[in-house]
């Protein structure tokens, strides 16, 4: 089984090809705003390096966020079109899950933190399902970290530090580092963005378990919802008289 994975949720654009043996090829870049310019050549390059044509693929995997809107739309649109145009299923994963998958297991609790900009981050507490993604300020996250440390200490007596990974953790390192005792430890800058090869490996497992969907059903997870109607006071000028 051959999977092409697309990662554009945060600061990195990545494409990887993988099969049951692991990653076959990957291309990554940190292109700033140029996600749309970078992604498709990276897909072509990764396929060329792996000597696999798109027609030989069995599934497409994509990171659906949370993260930055512009990149998410580029990546999700490409994944839907590739899968639709090739008649393939799509495996979706959240950026926070991919970050967790990239960390070796057994080292302790991992909390992935993605930067949402404008003073907000998204995170996932340990042993929590992906549906419980939290979006809030770094101060709110710091308070949850302190609470977690208290609970763990009360339950087990001795606890190791939690590991914080992702660009949101690095950006707010000072605040989060002082949030709890023992102080959290931080992943390196190579774990700032969800690694696309981790996404590809996750996706192989998901395909094996039958966890995939039709491309038409794939949507980004934005993490910001604002359903309110705009309460216009001045957009209309005169009272209707005729």
């Amino acid at each position: 089984m051959r999977i092409l994975a697309i990662e554009t949720a945060t600061i990195e654009v990545g494409v990887a090809l993988a099969d049951e043996t692991g990653p076959l090829a990957s291309v990554t870049a940190r292109p700033g705003r140029r996600q749309a310019e970078t992604l498709h050549p990276a897909i072509a390059d990764a396929c060329r390096i792996a000597r696999i044509t798109p027609a030989e693929l069995d599934a497409i995997a994509v990171d659906i966020g949370p993260g930055l809107f512009t990149g998410l739309r580029v990546g999700v649109a490409a994944a839907k079109a590739l899968a639709g145009g090739l008649g393939l299923p799509v495996v979706t994963a959240m950026s926070l899950e991919v970050l967790i998958a990239a960390c070796p297991s057994g080292l302790g609790e991992v909390i992935p933190v993605v930067d949402m900009r404008r003073g907000e981050v998204a995170w996932l507490m340990p042993r929590s399902p992906a549906s419980t993604v939290r979006v809030g300020t770094p101060a709110e996250l710091a308070a949850e970290l302190a609470e977690l440390a208290r609970e763990s200490a009360a339950a087990a007596g001795n606890v190791g530090p939690v590991l914080l990974v992702g660009d949101g953790a690095l950006r707010h390192r000072e605040l989060l580092g002082a949030s709890s005792a023992p102080a959290p430890v931080f992943g390196g800058i190579e774990l700032a963005a969800p690694p696309v090869s981790s996404l590809a490996v996750l996706a192989i497992a998901a395909m094996t378990d039958g966890r995939f969907c039709d491309p038409a059903a794939v949507c980004p997870f934005y993490g910001r919802e604002a359903d309110a109607r705009i309460n216009w006071s001045s957009r209309q000028g005169r009272e209707t008289v005729s």
């Binding site: 930055l68 809107f69 512009t70 900009r117 934005y222 919802e225 604002a226 309110a228 109607r229 705009i230």
Partner: peptide, 22 residues
């Protein structure tokens, strides 16, 4: 220009924080 918009979500969708952060 937000004149055409009807919902706050549409303002969110403009992803202005990405411009500001850049």
């Amino acid at each position: 220009d937000l004149w055409r918009l009807g919902h706050l979500q549409e303002v969110v969708d403009l992803a202005l924080e990405e411009e500001l952060d850049g």
